[in-house]
Design a protein around this nucleic acid. Structure first.
Length: 766
DNA sequence: GAGTTTGAAACT
DNA sequence: CAGTTTCAAACTC
């Protein structure tokens, strides 16, 4: 068989398709998709597909904003991939960890989309080429051979990254997890395991109807995914859908029904390269069926949301149900199979629990570097009783992570997303990720011959979220005040300088802004990204959080001479304000001045440069909370109660935490930010007000700080990394001699964005 | 809301 | 690296 690669069609094409709805399989629309398809039509696979049950057209989603772009800048922007076809795969794929079992419907749609992408298959052989083809705008286009279809029992699909030999198994347990796994992997082993569930396939064969997609459900799912809650915060997930999965679409192999035939075809071409566009969605494909069942549900969400993109595409939650129902096949089996992972990847484990996953991913620009570190391969396997098909996804390049970057507010998404079109589109620029997918088919488990591996190169993606829609539609509006977000008033900078709070925060300007001639809008995404990139080239930490949180009080004191756990990374330079005005970034950030400050006459109530402390010790409370389990440097984003504003994040990393939240005297609400880059993507929503201490939790993400580490590599201490990073040689953070940051070392620095004006009183929450 | 002050960001 | 200019937020009235 030849796997289907998803390729980006041109944007225009994709858009059309998306609008029209994607028809899976034989639908007449398929012709629209493309010329490229014609090539493949002859292939047995297509024939098989054609034979499949009629597919229902699905609406595509549009994604407006891209978050990731900047973050990925370093990466070769190979693709601007749309979304993920892979998603479909996700249907079948499970991620144990991330589970968004709900959304089976989504999956279906994804699958459909993927089919539309089939036209691209021709590109398979030239993955690189395909990658280039990806349009960022095309969120929809992603084709993954993987089918969500349940019935692939026998076949296993394994996507191999570059090296087939090393087969890491990735289980994509959770539907939503897709993105997360990458992240996790990065942080931990980098290995991801994806399992694909086979169940859906049967339905196809049987001509079962594919369930229609529910946008609503999808949206809700998406929203879940989008939420960037810290893992800890994860909400229990319920697998909503029990729908029967539909596998509408893809058979990777035509063989499903007749494995033997497929195999034959496969034989001729033992290895096919498939390029898959996956947007994040692809990753999501796997649903945490098991997980859902397990009930551990909550876990999934935390991370997942960051990844939201991935998850949206598809999760097959139904799979679980099906399995439970017995309708499905050997779903259990599918889960069972695990491919050997690369070193890097930690097994996602069926358990949704891994919070760890979430941790790393968020770093915007640096993601690329991180990604490289990440898991080498991802494997999706799905075994069915009879033959087994495995899909192994690896990224040869090792670029993962990008996915992790994008974070969206799930809730916002939900609100916004109503119809796919409207909803945030997660478009991905698949710049970075390349996945190699190898597919192995074996008819019987016993017969290796028939195994076939296909390598696919996937895509990378950048999420795009349409900011405005979010804003208008999103919670923000719901929140009632448009004010939730920060509003700038730029006159001359076009909102493309750091002067602009919106831009500096990594978010697009929104209606509440009073800026003139603003370019910090999704429509000027390219400009925004280019500008961000330029600024970051000058100062890699320009968009990094300005406040670093130190976990270890003791060390802090040493370093900063101030009690507060958090410090401004560069320090202030106040001459006249006495660090008692919001002119002072330290004060604005609610942190004390440190030795890094050059201020004169410091009277910062949060902590003086000279070491005298201030009254507010709010930070201490935070310290305990804020510190990640690792002890590694973490960025903490504090967001106010409002979770994520719909505000569009700028493409760059999400979340740059730097966002000053402010509760300015004026009362501007802190801007919600989408982590655009995710990175921080994670951006997290810190719900907590650091100052409040225990009451609020702080979301922590591995912050940008990590990035430096990664980039620099050896440096154990994040701090050092940070400093080194500042191009300007400005003081970013106090250097540590110890370097101990390292992991779990006593000292921890956390970059955190703190509300610009934290509440002094513990209870007062703004 | 207009004007002033302030300090970061950008520029030289 | 230091000095200057530009800019927009913060602040005052």
């Amino acid at each position: 068989m030849k796997m289907v690669s998803v390729v980006n069609g041109e944007n225009g094409e994709n858009d059309e398709e998306s609008e029209k709805g994607i028809v899976v399989m034989d639908t007449p629309e398929r012709t629209q998709i493309a010329n490229p398809l014609s090539k493949f039509e002859d292939s047995p696979v297509f024939n098989y597909i054609n034979s499949l049950s009629p597919i229902k057209p699905v609406k595509s989603m549009h994604f407006t904003q891209t978050f990731s772009s900047l973050s990925f800048a370093s990466l070769p922007s190979v693709f601007t991939s749309p979304h993920v076809s892979s998603i479909r795969d996700s249907k079948f794929l499970r991620r144990h960890q991330f589970s968004d079992p709900s959304k089976p419907e989504h999956i279906i749609e994804d699958a459909k989309k993927a089919e539309t992408n089939e036209g691209n298959l021709g590109n398979d052989q030239n993955p690189s080429k395909q990658q280039t083809d990806f349009n960022p705008s095309d969120s929809n286009t992603s084709a993954v051979p993987l089918n969500g279809c349940s019935n692939f029992e026998s076949s296993k699909l394994s996507y191999d990254p570059a090296s087939l030999n090393t087969m890491n198994t990735l289980k994509m347990a959770g539907p939503s997890a897709s993105s997360a796994p990458f992240i996790n992997n990065a942080s931990a082993d980098g290995s991801l395991r994806i399992e694909e569930e086979i169940e859906g396939i049967d339905a196809l064969h049987h001509g079962k109807e594919v369930t229609g997609c529910d946008w609503d459900s999808m949206i809700s799912d998406a929203s879940e995914l989008l939420n960037f809650n810290s893992p800890s915060e994860m909400v229990p997930y319920k697998g909503s859908g029990q729908n029967t999965l539909d596998c509408t679409d893809y058979k990777v192999d035509g063989t499903d029904n007749n494995p033997s035939e497929q195999n034959d075809g496969m034989k001729d071409e033992p290895e096919n390269h498939l390029t898959v566009d996956s947007t994040l969605n692809n990753f999501e494909v796997a649903e945490p069926v098991e997980d859902a069942d397990e009930g551990g549900p909550n876990m999934f969400r935390g991370m997942r949301r960051r990844c939201l993109v991935f998850e949206m595409s598809g999760t097959r939650r139904k799979h679980l149900e099906d399995s439970s129902n017995g309708s499905s096949l050997n779903t259990s089996e599918s889960n069972q199979t695990v491919l050997p992972n690369d070193n890097n990847l930690p097994p996602l484990g069926a358990t949704a629990n891994d919070s760890s996953r979430c941790i790393l991913p968020g770093i915007g620009l640096h993601l690329n570097s991180i990604a490289s570190n990440l898991v080498d391969q991802k494997v999706i396997k799905h075994e069915s009783s009879g033959s087994t098909r495995q899909l192994i996804i690896g990224h040869p390049s090792g670029i993962y992570g990008s996915m992790a970057l994008a974070t969206l507010d799930a809730t916002s998404l939900e609100n916004n997303m109503g119809p796919p079109q409207n909803s945030l589109s997660v478009a991905e620029d698949a710049k970075a990720l390349n996945f190699v997918i190898s597919e192995e088919l074996s008819q019987g488990q016993t017969s290796p011959k028939k195994k076939r591996q296909v390598t696919c190169i996937l895509i990378v993606f950048t999420l795009k979220v349409a900011p405005k829609k979010l804003i208008t539609n999103g919670r923000r509006s719901d929140a009632g005040d448009g004010e939730a977000c920060k509003r700038c008033n730029c006159k001359k900078s076009k909102c493309l300088k750091l002067y602009c709070e919106c831009f500096a925060a990594g978010v697009y300007c929104v209606e509440p802004c009073s800026c003139h001639d603003c370019y910090n809008k999704p429509i000027h995404e390219d400009t925004v990204l280019a500008t961000r990139k330029q600024i970051e080239s000058r100062n890699p930490l320009a968009f990094a959080p300005k406040v670093i949180k130190t976990a270890d009080p003791m060390q802090e004191d040493e370093l900063n001479n101030t009690p507060a756990s958090a410090r401004h990374k560069r320090g202030c330079n106040c001459k006249k304000s006495g660090c008692l005005k919001k002119y002072c970034e330290c004060y604005q950030g609610g942190v004390g001045c440190s030795i890094n400050c050059r201020c004169e006459g410091c009277k910062n109530t949060f902590g003086r440069k000279d070491g005298s402390e201030m009254d507010l010790e709010v930070n201490h409370a935070d310290e305990s909370e804020g510190i990640g389990s690792d002890g590694s440097l973490q960025m903490v984003l504090h967001t106010e109660a409002e979770p994520i504003s719909a505000t569009p994040a700028t493409p760059s990393r999400f979340g740059r935490q730097s966002i000053p939240f402010v509760n300015s005297s004026k009362g501007k609400p802190p801007r919600a930010f989408l982590a655009i880059g995710g990175s921080s993507s994670s951006q997290r929503f810190g719900k907590l007000n650091p100052f409040k201490g225990g009451e609020n939790k702080q979301l922590q993400t591995v912050g940008e700080n990590e990035i430096p580490e990664i980039l620099e590599g050896n440096n154990g201490s994040p701090i050092s990394g940070v400093k080194s990073c500042s191009p300007n040689s400005k003081r970013v953070s106090p250097p540590h001699s110890g370097g101990g940051m390292g992991q779990r070392s006593s000292r921890k620095l956390i970059l955190q964005s703190i509300p610009s004006f934290p509440c002094l009183t513990p209870n007062s929450k703004q």
